[in-house]
Design a protein around this nucleic acid. Structure first.
Lengths: 191, 191
DNA sequence: AGTGATATAATCAATTTTGATTAGTCAAGC
DNA sequence: GCTTGACTAATCAAAATTGATTATATCACT
């Protein structure tokens, strides 16, 4: 996930200082990326060193002086390359929540069910939050296309967790084997 | 994404040496996580230092000596805690492919369409690969539940990219505004 | 005029992750 | 008997990421 594309893409539309950039990402692109402030500054520094971005210090009133970042010619070229790369190739996504399910046999079905109920609530909360997001931009804004994408994934998660909970209902214990001795299975197959 | 849960969970089923652990993850859990070898060794070291895992060196034939990792009592406790945490809370997922779409107005619609066609092919390839994955384990294996989850997400991506391509078809240029001056919009709203 | 809350602007030390590399073993073919 | 490629086993230096913190300014309220 080369996050330079995000910073270059935003700077391409408008030169900005670091705080402004981070604030925009936090407020408006929170469902697109989890880029944190120090990482953003780190990447901006790197882009400077590579000549893709120019940095100018500016003083606004009495506030601490700040750095305004402008995209350069080579920066624009780099952005185009990254964008084409991004649009062309599919990047795998991994789901942290899958890890727990792999090992759910460690708990009793009822316990798992209770835990998943809480998770389900959080997913539904997030779906509502995104649905109610004010539509600042025009309806053709690509950000809204991304929002739809994200919502579709959240609905998959909702359904999946509901299915798991359903599967666990009315169940006292595990009558199927809980992925025993995975490595031996593996070795048997590969030998 | 606390990946200790994966290593502890596997070691809990069977003690293993590093290579074996990594090999199993690479071969059998490649669609669940992107944990790389050096990271796995790093986490194993940390688990050792924290007393969650015990490390014993072993010599097999003429091969270089290797470290066999066993989960300890505190390690089991830690695992239970991590697992409950994982099952209880929903972890947000971010999609690298969204970043490109946000800036797609930088290219002509036709170019974007061509790029997305390639991406679509890759998604379909991955769907086929996962569908054809041999079912080593019993059908109730939680890994298969995760596989279904992953496939559902891939199908969302497939549909989403198809929709985007459809949207772009027959289009010469952008007649809608391309997310202009995002920061000004943002400031207008927040002021 | 003082106090706490929030906004502005960024940096640092510490942790985590990765691409590249090391180093030896084994089996197959020439 | 020698080379080539794959497997076993892990490490290292470099890069990326994060939680915590610093420091000042402004605002709302008493």
């Amino acid at each position: 996930m080369d996050r330079r594309i995000l910073l270059l893409g935003l700077l391409r539309m408008q030169e900005m200082h670091g705080y402004q950039l981070n604030d925009f990402i936090d407020r408006r692109l929170d469902f697109v990326t989890d880029l944190k402030k120090p990482t953003a500054y780190y990447i901006l520094d790197k882009l400077c060193k590579d000549g893709y971005v120019r940095e100018e210090t500016e003083q606004a009133g009495n506030r601490p002086e700040r750095k305004v970042y402008h995209i350069t010619g080579p920066g624009e070229e780099c952005f185009q390359k990254l964008l084409l790369q991004n649009l062309t190739t599919f990047e795998q996504t991994y789901f942290a929540d899958d890890l727990g399910v792999i090992f759910m046999h460690s708990f009793a079905p009822r316990e798992v069910q209770t835990a998943l109920q809480v998770k389900l609530g959080q997913i539904r909360g997030e779906i509502e939050r995104l649905q109610d997001l004010p539509a600042h931009n025009n309806p053709n804004d690509p950000v809204r296309l991304v929002l739809r994408h994200k919502l579709a994934h959240l609905r998959v998660d909702e359904q999946w967790v509901m299915d798991l909970i359903g599967m666990l209902a009315e169940r006292e214990g595990w009558n199927d084997e809980p992925l025993v001795k995975p490595v031996e299975d593996c070795l048997q197959v590969s030998v």
